[in-house]
Design a protein around this nucleic acid. Sequence first.
DNA 1: ACTCTACTGCCAGAAACTGGCAGTATGCCT
DNA 2: AGGCATACTGCCAGTTTCTGGCAGTAGAGT
Lengths: 219, 219
Amino acid sequence: MQTLRRYRYPVSGKQLASELGVSIRTLYRDIASLQAQGAHIEGEPGVGYLLRPGFMLPPLMFSDEEIEALVLGSRWVSRRGDAKLGEAARNVMAKVAAVIPAELRQELETSTLLIGPAATQPEDDSILERVRAAIRAERKLCIAYGDSEGNPSTRIIWPFAVGFFDTIRVVVAWCELRKGFRHFRTDRIGELHSLEARIPRRRHDLLKEWREYKGVEPQ
Amino acid sequence: MQTLRRYRYPVSGKQLASELGVSIRTLYRDIASLQAQGAHIEGEPGVGYLLRPGFMLPPLMFSDEEIEALVLGSRWVSRRGDAKLGEAARNVMAKVAAVIPAELRQELETSTLLIGPAATQPEDDSILERVRAAIRAERKLCIAYGDSEGNPSTRIIWPFAVGFFDTIRVVVAWCELRKGFRHFRTDRIGELHSLEARIPRRRHDLLKEWREYKGVEPQ
DNA sequence: ACTCTACTGCCAGAAACTGGCAGTATGCCT
DNA sequence: AGGCATACTGCCAGTTTCTGGCAGTAGAGT
């Protein structure tokens, strides 16, 4: 898995086998067993193998308390994240539930830590989804924003993080108009579209610089 | 693992081996390798084997979105749960980070979904911790409670769930005084102590009945 | 002292894995 | 259309690993 993950383009079985020090025949068998375990490895004749992005977690041991924390966290994301993120959280729980024995599954589903409904009406989810997509793709966004006094403006921003507060969510970005870090409440973003232009700096560096500027501890 | 989990008392290796259809010698070897993988199996000469409570997750594959959801959920619990639950959430992330290759670890730590600070000052964490302990042990609680008009009362309750709202947390319980389901805000609980007496009904049944009574969907 | 039990080293037989070979199917390039 | 690179499968012998029995040590409870 680790070897295959290093490549972002299809790589031939022959090459993989020589890197791992095994024969081609064994490689085919190993890949088949990895696929049986759920790894998303795509193989095409004439092309090679490609690992679809994702995480492979080895066997892991969790205490009761840790499982409760995991379930509670997933439930929170499921109810407070945007639609896609919520579905991802439910998928996590479904995957975990699918592989544990039946006696434990009940313990999972019966977990007694519940997330209550949101205090405020959720705004349009698709804004958050599109912001997250832009962050991941490291692309600039053009937004119509109304500030706290209601003054409308149109800005080009470099989004690199989303902050979840109890009742609101803010996009953390570099603002080209103001030439500085700014926060934008998602419920005050009117129109939004993703630009072709890439953000000229790495997301990780922007985040680090913003943390130093604001004095925010890593989480 | 599954075989061993069924027992709540120490069980001899001989018995385990015959249930699994392997020899004693092999069982010792298998247990050694499970322990090497992180399973909490305790073996004492003259007593037998005992599995400390916990979950063993087999290898699992997650997509990028699912990992983001998992990280975000853990961060929320880490900042909004009580001290023990928060530590458990951080342990989950630490365990995951410990077993994934270095390139991926950075992706985890750099995850750009952040949880902001709580809007209100958190009340005494230990109340929530003790309520959760009572729920897990299925023990009655005696609490001093002030209702919304501030009238103080002392009640014996059967706690079976905790609801997390944006700014407050409520204990869901059967109230012996009112002979019905009641909710108690944790910030209005004054004194609290756990009683020796067990709750006469199963937590799971109480939760189910409360859901039907309140019309709450399972999460 | 005795029994029950966990745990280790050793070794032969059993099981699983590995690597090579031959062969089929599919996509890309000329 | 044809050649080439590649994924993928069945078969079989050689190698490695796993298994089960035996003998023995050590700790806990009676």
